[in-house]
Structure formats: structure tokens, C-alpha cells
Design a protein around this nucleic acid. Structure first.
Lengths: 373, 373
DNA sequence: TTTCAACACGAAAACGTTTTCGGCTCATAT
DNA sequence: ATATGAGCCGAAAACGTTTTCGTGTTGAAA
């Protein structure tokens, strides 16, 4: 054999392939002939009459193997487009190079941007991203985590569902963490869990937005927020109140609307606008902001001439609605990227486990557009 | 032992756990004491002085095992919260119960809705969803597919990147299919690949939208489309032209704008509106539609009084912009759900492989809103 | 001629499952 | 007393890798 050149050697092999005498036909006679099943080390070893170890080492350019065999194996592997089986590697290495992001909803610009950020950073580092939706349901969140904590993934990035925030039940998360699987929380977090976190300073951002109105001389500033158990809603409300108090303006409960449902809130907003003389509206998300504008128009009030509006989350709506909406930008891509970076760093840290959990704060800024004057 | 009750038996075990004499401490002395590492069959077997097989069979309620042992094992497993390792199962079963969806972009309402549909159907059937972004790049699409085709996933759902559509190079896809891995394409597809597909009738939808204008008596109907290599852009253009010809209206090339870049196209649209007397605009996506409205307003033309506008994709912009936009709804959730269903059916079909590829057409409808009169 | 190192390779364990098959023990039927 | 069979369990293979360690061959040095 050694006197033959590699070329001749493979010519013979290739002929056998063409005639389908080869490798695949002996495995499974039901295989459709043209179907190239994935080739394994074992098959290569058998064909080349060497051991599996030799093949593996050759492909990893081990010095243990002679130049000759190495080339032979590598050429053969290339010919058959050999790629190591990832599952087998995962089992052996006890790492899957896959991280999971659990979010309440994906049809939501902010969360989509976060995923985008996560994906890119993960990819750069050779990781894949599994996406799970909790649909704002506690149970789905639990099921998803339990299903995946059994070796399928290396770590979690997550934003809590509303229901989880309401129940304040985080046992599923502590359990996962106790098993040694890192978790990074973002945006909708809880202080009851010790882990890495990525947030914006919701309170400060709301303070700044409110202050912006105050600086313009507005006195009757309304707030459209979510119910308090949604962490970010609560924090933004706090910032709003702080800004008012800070400027010695009275906090009028009538000007604060807390919306529970994610649908059919138009009437509540219309009522708010009808029953009060309002200069400005600060809404904790895009939807509330754009709805406020629409309802104001219906009531014959012009934005920004009669009422100014600031929203939260620099999403697609704020940018493209007419008038476009001044908003607190919440850089989702950056947030996701940061979360992924933190997770991967922890995954790849020497197991020393400094155990120093960090909370990163992503800066926000007020993007001025047409809905304020 | 048999004379002891299970309670007593486990009391002893539990005491050992509390004292950390147990199971984990002997594995890795560096483990932090409170950290419960995942427990395996082997560890259970060792502790209970039975074989691995016995443990496995007990947990799967095999009749081979005595009632006694079965209960003992099950109780023990429950106590330690045993969950089978998914990776090991994947390796053994040669299925991962994971499917991958490759899309050009995620910060895009339509694709987000598709993912949502895929996720829900996948979850109902016990599958997880890996999300990959091609960023409209051919290379990233290839890399993603090659990386995952090595056992990591069971099948693909994908929408082609622009670059791939431009190059018309689909070797990465045929390769994957030849390896026996099913692929379902949606929305941006190609006829050069034989596989299951989910689409809308882009041409018909565009025809209907155009016809809607024609029925209203409009004569100067403009089209804002993408460049032709984007499959859906081309098809929608065809539908537009067909409708005009069908009604013996002349097709004016000046009224057809093909946009290549995804940014900075405002001027092109402004030019289109300035240089022509236009009754109506049909745009092949939301962004073009909303931009057309904005530019029209800038030029002092009112929508829908002076110009009517129809968009494509019933997204967040169409719904919340002012005026809200009449649009061809493209049910992404349904599309994703259908794609997932087809993929999973093929995965779980008895390997008979009927090889009958189907193309499902999701119906569209025209959602009338404020931008048309 | 003997000894020893360098070289090239293979056997086997390990990751965590499931499943087939074989074997042991005991009671029952002959 | 022996054969039979049911009941219960363990050994081992398999999935596809990587890696450690052992071993046989070769050549050169003593």
C-alpha cells in the first residue's frame, strides 16, 4: 500500500463509492443510495484499517501519529466531509456550547433586540442560542428551565415573566443555580436571587424623563405605568414620583394610571386624558405612549402642541409613528450583548468561581423627537 | 433491609446527606458543599447497591423489576431530583428534539411572529428551538448550517438571506438535505431546492391589493418594492403588474420604485412622490409604506385624502402609526406554526419517507385601516 | 549481542443513557 | 430428586468522541 500514491489509493476508494459498494450500503440496506449519512470515526477507522484512536489523533494533528498516516486519514476525512458529532462531544466535555434565553414574549421589539445582542455575542464565542418563551406564564418558565437544566445547555439568560414577578416564586431559578449552572437576569429581575444581572437604571431614567418635563415648565404631568408587581413598572413609577417631589410638585394620584391588562386599555387612557387638565404624559412603554397620542387626538388635543408625550423603549413604534415619539432609549442589543458576555465569561472562568456576582447598568438616553416641544 | 420500612431507610440516607458524607463529597472534594450536582444513574446504582440497568428499568417502570426495588429506586430518585441527561439520550436515540430556525434578522416584526409560531408548535410537541441569524449574509447562513448539521439538531426551518438569493448558491442546503436532515423553507424560498415549503401567494396578494385600488378608480398607482433578487419582492411586483394589465391600465416604469438598501431610502420615495401625480401607493413592506406616508405629509399631501397607501405585513407599525395603515396581512404566527408542524411530521414519520414534498400556502387578507379611502 | 529510547499505534475508559440477553434463585410440577 | 419456568437482576453493547496508558517495533548506542 505504501508504495501507492495517495491519489491512486483514493481513486480506488472513490470508485467504490460511485458503485455504491461502499460504507453506506453496508450499514443500512434501506438507505436511499444517494443519501450520504454522516461518517464517523469508527467508519473511517474501519476503511483505513487503523484504530479509532489513530483516526482521532490524526485529525487533531497529534504528534503521536506518523506523517504518513496523518495525511492519509486527513485526506480521507476531507473526502467524506467528516465533522465530529457535536452531541458526542457535548457528552464527553460536559458542555454543550449552547445557552438559553428565556423571555416573556418575542413579538416585542425590545426583547427581539435583546435576542439579537445575545445571538451576536454568543456566535462570536462559538455558542448557539436556544430561545424559550414563557408567555408571561410562571409554569412555562418553570417547565422550560427544568427541561433544559439536564445537560442540554450551559447557562441561562432570562427576564422574568409577569406571573413569576407576581408570585415571587423563584425556586426554579435557585435550583438551577445550585446545580452549578450560571444564570444572568436582565431587565425584569429580582433582588431575591443572587446572580449576574443586566439592567438599566429604570428609576433614574424615569426621573430624567419627568425632570425634562419639569424643566419645560409643565405642572400637570401624568404617568401611565404598569401594575406594581412588574419590577420595571414600579421602578419607573418611583423615578417619576421622586422627580416631582424633588421639584416640590405635588403628586396627584389621579394623574397616575396603572394598567394591568395588555389589551383594551384605550378607555382607561381616554379617561385619564378627559378627566384631567394635562400638560404632559410619561408612559412606561411604547404602546401606552402611542395610545395616549391617539386618544389625545381623538379628544381634539394636539401632540405636542397641547400635550407632550414621552415613551419608554426606543422601538419601532416610537420611530415611525406620527408624530414620532420622544422616548427613553433602552438599548436592547447592548443589554443582550452584555448579558451574553457575562454568561460566557462565567462559563469559561477557571472553576475558581470568585462568586462575585455583578450587576451591570446599561445607560439610557432621552431621544428627542416630535412628541415633545 | 427488607424488614425496614422505606421511611427508615431514607432517614439514614438523609442524615448522611445532611452531614455531607454523601454522594457529592466523594465525587469532587472541591465541590462547594451546598452545591447539588446532577445525580446520575450510576450514582444511584452505587448508593442503592444495584446495577445501573436495574435503576434505569425501575425508573421506566419495567415489569422486570420487583415492586420492592422499583419503589426504593423511584423514591431515591425523587429525593435526589433525578432527571435523565438529555445529551446522553440524544446520543443514544440519535435525536435531539431540537429544531433550528435560520432567519435573516430578528429585529423585524414578521420574523419575530414566525419564531413565535414555531416555538409554540415545537413546544407542544416536545421540541426546543434554536434560533440562528444570518444577518442577510450568505456566509453566516452556511456556517450556521454546517455547524449544526453534525447531530446538534434534528431539522431546519429557514428563510433565505438576501445574499443567498442573490448568489443563487444553495449547496449548503442540498448538502444538509442529502444527509437526511429535513428542511422546511418559508417566505423567502427558492424553487431550486426540493423540500417542504410554507409561503403566502405573494403574487396574488399583490394582485388583490392593486385590484383594490383599481376598483376604487385610481389610475396612477405606484409600487415601492425591493430589488428583484429578493424572491418576495419580485413576486409582489409581478402581482402588481398583472393587476394593472388585467384592467388594461398601462404599466408606468416611473411609478415603480425598487429599493436596494434598507436604509436611507427616504429620498427615493420623496422623489417618486414629487415627480409624479400619484393616486395610490402599494408598498411591499411596512417600512416603505410608513415612509411613503411621512414623505407625502412633508410634501403637503394628505393620506388618505390625497394619496391612499397599502402596505404589506400586518405589523406593529401598520397598526399604530397615524394614520394606521391598510395592509396585506401575512400571518407570521400561522406560517411559523405550519412550518414547525411540517418539519416535526417529517421527523416523526416512520422512515418510509414518502418523499412527497409539499408547499403550503397561507392565506392573506387585506386589513382595511385609515390609510385608504 | 544487548539495552534503551523514540516512535507509532491500539486498547480501553469515560461521558450517561437504554436495551438485549444471559443467568441465578426459588417454587412448582413431574 | 429432577426438570421447568417464572421472577428478578446484572453484564455488556451501543451511541461518537477524546485521552491516557500500554505495547510492539525499530534504530542506534554500548
Amino acid at each position: 500500500m505504501k508504495t501507492f500514491s495517495l491519489i491512486h489509493y483514493f481513486k480506488y476508494k472513490i470508485d467504490r463509492i460511485k458503485n455504491n459498494l461502499y460504507l453506506y450500503s453496508e450499514n443500512n440496506i434501506y438507505d436511499i443510495p444517494r443519501m450520504k449519512r454522516k461518517v464517523t470515526l469508527k467508519q473511517i477507522a474501519k476503511e483505513l484499517d487503523v484504530s479509532i484512536s489513530t483516526v482521532s489523533k490524526s485529525l487533531r494533528n497529534s504528534m503521536e501519529i506518523s506523517e504518513d498516516t496523518r495525511q492519509k486519514v486527513q485526506a480521507f476525512a476531507k473526502l467524506y466531509n467528516y465533522k465530529p458529532n457535536n452531541i458526542a462531544l457535548s457528552l464527553k466535555n460536559k458542555k454543550t456550547k449552547t445557552i438559553c434565553i428565556i423571555i416573556p414574549e418575542i413579538i416585542h421589539h425590545f426583547f427581539a433586540t435583546v435576542i439579537s445582542g445575545v445571538e451576536h455575542v454568543a456566535n462570536e464565542n462559538g455558542y448557539n442560542v436556544l430561545v424559550c418563551l414563557s408567555d408571561e406564564s410562571f409554569d412555562k418558565e418553570v417547565i422550560n428551565m427544568e427541561m433544559l437544566a439536564n445537560g442540554s445547555i450551559d447557562g441561562f439568560i432570562m427576564s422574568l415573566s409577569k406571573e413569576t414577578q407576581l408570585k415571587k416564586d423563584f425556586h426554579h431559578i435557585t435550583e438551577v443555580i445550585n446545580q452549578g449552572m450560571p444564570v444572568v437576569m436582565f431587565d425584569r429581575i429580582t433582588n431575591e436571587i443572587l446572580c449576574d444581572k443586566v439592567i438599566i437604571d429604570d428609576s433614574l431614567a424615569a426621573f430624567n424623563a419627568t425632570q425634562y418635563f419639569i424643566d419645560k415648565g409643565f405642572k400637570k404631568i401624568a404617568l401611565i405605568s404598569t401594575v406594581d408587581y412588574v419590577s420595571v413598572g414600579k421602578l419607573r413609577t418611583e423615578g417619576y414620583i421622586k422627580a416631582l417631589k424633588n421639584s416640590d410638585l405635588k403628586v396627584d394620584e389621579n394623574l397616575i394610571l396603572k394598567i394591568e391588562d395588555t389589551e383594551n386599555f384605550e378607555d382607561s387612557i381616554a379617561n385619564l386624558l378627559t378627566n384631567n387638565e394635562i400638560d404632559a404624559v410619561f408612559a412606561v412603554n411604547e404602546l401606552f405612549a402611542v395610545t395616549a397620542i391617539k386618544e389625545a387626538h381623538k379628544l381634539g388635543k394636539k401632540v405636542p402642541d397641547d400635550i407632550s408625550v414621552i415613551g419608554f423603549t426606543d422601538g419601532i413604534i416610537s420611530k415611525y409613528s406620527s408624530p414620532s415619539i420622544t422616548t427613553v432609549s433602552q438599548n436592547g442589543v447592548k443589554m443582550g450583548g452584555k448579558a451574553a458576555k457575562m454568561l460566557i465569561e462565567r462559563l469559561e472562568a477557571e472553576e475558581e468561581e470568585e462568586e462575585q456576582y455583578r450587576t451591570e447598568v446599561i445607560e439610557t438616553e432621552l431621544v428627542e423627537r416630535e412628541s415633545t416641544k
